[in-house]
Design a binder for these strands. Structure first.
Length: 477
DNA sequence: ATGTTC
């Protein structure tokens, strides 16, 4: 492939504007990670995104960049609300997939002894795996629509959490402007029985030990200290969000044609943000975003119930933060010296707002917005905070995870004669899963070392590292 | 990611 790529410095690479590109590409990676990135066609996708009308700033790639549907995963792109577009491919099928972090007052030494019992309780409490699972919450369409409009706030108002949870969630767990009339009956049907379920693939519910705090002041601000037990929840909008994406791809394909948008790749189907089709997708997408916020809220509630059943009623799990990594929304950013509204698409990328930002919760105003970056189920995950560098360079964004090293097929082959749950148990990690196949596909060596990804965002100054978490117990689909 | 090929 003849794609020009220039090394800017230790952490940055530029795809100079050429051909139909309206702007340049900027990718954050070490030399080693860039070699991995070049195994697939993600850089071409960064270039293709730079050809879409109304793009503002660079077409951005995070160090966990890899090939996705139309837009790359690990991609960030902002568009002018008046001249630019909105695209389902820039969000992904799992609308508002994201990560929530809870902190406990429990010491890991105490929890480890009862980990099999705790993981059993969590597995029982939070349905997982593909499909309807055993979701005990059933919503009629009226209740579902209130959930789609109210997000995590709706869940808390219905007794499924604490007001502080909402305060410590991106966008307070609810985007205004959800349009339930654009969520099809089929999407409604899928959403009715999946609230509070984990899903499959890389989704998980994990009990962690805070293994390392890199900066005492940052750790203090986020309430994290070495030896403490924390919980990571990674899930999204389940079948409902998937159906919204599926339903709108043909709509957006027609819209692109109707509005005369030339697409370098048909998978970049999009519509002008202000167009009827663009606003219909945006309304449906925001409903799916709110469903995902509510889903993680219900999972957190069930997690608390499971902890209390095992460790007593006095156990508290306080929410550190909930951040999404598949979303499009309107944010204010300074571009070329002027503050303006931008339609930011983050697909496999997280918001990472700096200290002092008005949308960062009060508790973190001095240190920056927390960012959770999951690794794999055998090694570790990281907690970061956003920086001024992110505001200046990446529309306030950072990375979202490790990224795969092996395909699912290859991982399955490589683990055929191994017993991954047993191997993990021997290393002190209790795993429960709906499917043995999922565990094999998700085994640790299938993923890159997330520390390498974090090194890049920290080195480039688009995040600061707060803490490293090590898994003690894992629930998987 | 996904009632994993409506």
């Amino acid at each position: 492939m003849n794609l020009p790529l220039e090394r800017v410095d230790t952490w940055r690479w530029r795809i100079p504007k050429h051909g139909d590109m309206l702007t340049g590409g900027l990718v954050f990676a070490s030399e080693a990670l860039m070699a991995r990135i070049q195994h697939d066609r993600a850089l071409e996708q960064v270039r293709n995104v730079a050809c879409l009308p109304g793009i503002v700033g660079n077409s951005l790639g995070m160090p966990d960049l890899h090939w996705g549907y139309g837009f790359p995963i690990g991609g960030v792109a902002g568009f002018d609300p008046d001249e630019g577009v909105i695209s389902p491919g820039g969000v992904g099928y799992d609308i508002n997939c994201g990560v929530r972090l809870l902190r406990s007052h429990l010491d890991a030494d105490r929890v480890v002894k009862r980990m099999p019992k705790l993981v059993d309780a969590l597995y029982e409490a939070v349905p997982c795996g593909v499909g309807a699972a055993r979701g005990d919450l059933r919503l009629d369409n009226e209740a579902l629509d209130r959930c789609l409009v109210g997000g995590a706030r709706w869940a808390v108002e219905n007794g499924l959490g604490e007001p502080e949870d909402v305060e410590h969630t991106e966008e307070n767990g609810c985007l205004d402007g959800a349009d339930t009339s654009e969520v099809t009956p089929r999407a409604h049907g899928r959403g009715q029985k999946q609230l509070g379920t984990l899903g499959s693939g890389n989704h998980f519910l994990e009990v962690d030990r805070v293994a390392e705090v890199f900066d005492p002041a940052l750790g203090e601000a986020l309430g994290l200290h070495v030896g403490q037990v924390a919980v990571l929840i990674h899930s999204g909008s389940r079948g409902l969000g998937h159906q919204v994406c599926t339903d709108f791809l043909p709509v957006m394909k027609q819209a692109a044609k109707g509005h005369g948008i030339r697409l370098p790749d048909p998978q970049l189907a999009c519509a002008p943000f202000r167009s009827e089709e663009g606003q219909r997708y945006f309304g449906a997408m925001r409903a799916a975003v709110n469903y995902a916020f509510a889903n993680r809220q219900v999972i957190a509630h069930k997690t608390r119930e499971a902890f209390r059943a095992v460790f007593g009623e006095g156990v508290k799990l306080e929410q550190v933060y909930d951040v999404c990594h598949n979303i499009a929304k309107v944010e204010r950013h300074v571009v070329d010296g002027t503050e303006r509204e931008v339609v930011v698409h983050r697909k496999g990328a997280t918001r990472a707002f700096p200290p002092g930002h008005p949308l960062t919760p009060e508790a973190y105003r001095e240190v920056g917005q927390p960012v959770m970056v999951p690794g794999d189920m055998g090694r570790y995950s990281f907690v970061l905070v956003g920086t001024e560098g992110a505001r200046a360079e990446t529309l306030g964004s950072s990375c979202h995870g490790a990224g795969r090293l092996q395909s699912r097929t290859k991982a399955r082959q490589a683990t055929r004669d191994r017993n991954i749950p047993k191997e993990l148990a021997s290393r002190g990690i209790e795993v429960r899963a709906a499917s043995r196949r999922t565990i094999d596909e998700e085994y640790p060596e299938a993923y890159k070392d997330v520390a390498d990804v974090v090194d890049v965002v920290v080195g480039a100054g688009i995040a600061r590292v707060v803490a490293r978490l090590e898994p003690l117990g894992v629930v998987k689909g």
